[in-house]
Amino acid sequence: MSPKHNIPFLERQSYRRRRLIDTIRMLPVIGAVLWAVPLLWRQSEHSGEVMTSDAIIYIFMVWLLLVVGGGWLARCLKRSDAEETEQGH
């Protein structure tokens, strides 16, 4: 383990960065869960089935959410990297 793991308290910036990375790590999990939702939908044999157009809209909304979320997080990460470099970390 690298020595920095042993530091109990971090600067605010480094702390933020770690949480940012946590979010990045969490994003695919969120995506997987959301995309697993169709498993719960009823099959067409039953009444009240899900229409394909609704399914398309749902799945693509999840996609859009992940892309936008991922893009925003990547941007934040880049900024945080830049700040760290500026500070000579």
């Binding site: 990375i21 990045i24 790590r25 994003l27 695919p28 999990v29 995506g31 997987a32 995309w35 799945i59 996609w63 992940l66 991922g70």
Partner: peptide, 12 residues
């Protein structure tokens, strides 16, 4: 969807 999840989870 599979590759999208892999890319979104690039940090892992």
């Amino acid at each position: 969807i599979g590759p999208s999840l892999v890319m979104i989870g690039w940090w892992w």
